[in-house]
Amino acid sequence: MAGPNGRRSLAARLKDKRIIVAPGVYDAVSARIADRMGFEALYMTGYGTVASHLGLADAGLATYSEMVGRVAIIAENTTTPLIADADTGYGGLLNVRRTVQGYEAAGAAGIQIEDQEMPKKCGHTPGRRVVAIEEMVQKIQVAADARRHDDTVIIARTDARTTLGIDEALRRGEAYAKAGADVLFIESPETTEELAMIGRSFDVPVLCNVVNTGRTPELPSKQLEELGFGIAIYPGMALKAASQAVTAAYSYLHDTGATLGINVPLMDSKDLHELMGFPDVWEFEKRWHTGTGAAE
């Protein structure tokens, strides 16, 4: 688990002008794979976590208890700093305090809270409504005050752009920064010009949600860096890739009754065993002669 070193490294890294590229992870397997790649942060996607854990849409259906449990599992299986989606904080101000402290204890280095009304909806989907700016300001103030570690990164997300326009989204971003947010996340800008406005408007780092076929133009991370962004997250990439690959593999098995000749890349069994930690199990059993209770 990244723990305090992960928090410190993420907070320190955000002072650098180079962009952080953070892939979306949604379970222990995707997290273990991403953790080996050398990324500087991982992003626990709410959409992917709710989908993989509950088989439901990311529409405010997952509870705090369900989600903090996922944070703990992912953090336990990784050493890379983890940014975790905490939706709206799962309720009022007391809930926000509990969420921040619970996510911290579970291993999150960064905690993202958004200003949507309940039930919240996934970004880049229609029908999102936001709470009054004053309500979200208080949530950010509580979040910043509640953290037990000064280097836990609080990320404030606004979904105001889609329904209220870019000017209101920028106004909210400024208010959330003043309330204590360490990073601002202006969700769903719709043009490159709006991305540029966001990148130059704030004194704190800004985050871009990169979604292929989403509402926001998909730009290379280097271009986002040039526009002023400090973090680029790719929340849906792995889930989409895995879902497409599994669909193709199951279709092949259904149609042919075999895996021979399948044109979907399959991880070698040896590599999968190694990824999931079987060598440690085998070494343990060799040392302790499992079943005898005696060590060598």
Rank of each mutant, 00 (worst) to 15 (best):
A245R: 13
I155V: 14
P217G: 10
A72L: 12
I166L: 13
A51K: 13
T216S: 14
W288C: 10
A238P: 00
A105N: 10
V131Y: 05
D87V: 06
T125F: 09
D145H: 08
P279C: 05
A146I: 07
I186E: 00
P126V: 11
I231N: 00
N212H: 07
G257D: 10
G38Y: 13
K17Y: 14
R171Q: 11
G180T: 01
M237N: 14
E225S: 06
P220V: 07
I113K: 03
G236A: 05
V50C: 10
A75P: 03
Q112G: 10
R13T: 01
G6N: 05
M267Q: 14
S65T: 15
T216P: 07
N77V: 12
A245W: 11
Y47D: 07
C122H: 04
A12G: 08
M276H: 10
A51C: 11
D159C: 05
T158K: 01
L260F: 13
E226G: 06
V142R: 03
Y90V: 05
G46D: 09
A245E: 03
A59E: 07
A59R: 07
L195P: 01
G91K: 01
D87R: 02
A31N: 09
A28S: 12
A109Q: 10
D151H: 11
I83W: 09
W282M: 07
V137K: 05
P126T: 04
L219D: 05
A179T: 06
K15H: 12
M276F: 11
I198S: 01
E135V: 04
P189C: 08
G60R: 07
T88D: 07
A179P: 03
H273V: 12
R13I: 00
A242D: 02
G69S: 03
D85R: 01
I73E: 15
G257M: 10
L61E: 12
R13A: 02
R172K: 09
A179D: 04
N77E: 13
A169K: 03
W282L: 14
D255R: 14
G55R: 11
A72K: 14
S201M: 02
L239D: 04
E40T: 03
V183H: 02
P189K: 03
E193K: 12
R161I: 12
Q138P: 01
L266E: 15
V130G: 03
D145L: 10
V25K: 08
E134W: 09
N77D: 09
R8N: 08
E114K: 02
M197D: 09
Q223C: 02
T78Q: 08
R128E: 05
T49M: 09
I20P: 00
M118P: 02
H53P: 01
G127R: 11
R157T: 11
L54S: 10
G38L: 13
F185W: 14
K270R: 15
L56N: 03
L195V: 04
A177I: 00
A258I: 06
T162S: 13
T88P: 01
L14F: 09
Q223E: 15
G91R: 01
G257A: 10
A132I: 03
D280K: 15
T163W: 04
I111V: 15
V142S: 09
G230R: 04
A177S: 07
P265E: 10
E135W: 08
R287V: 15
T163R: 05
R147A: 06
A108V: 14
A72I: 02
Q138K: 14
Y176Q: 00
G46I: 02
T88E: 04
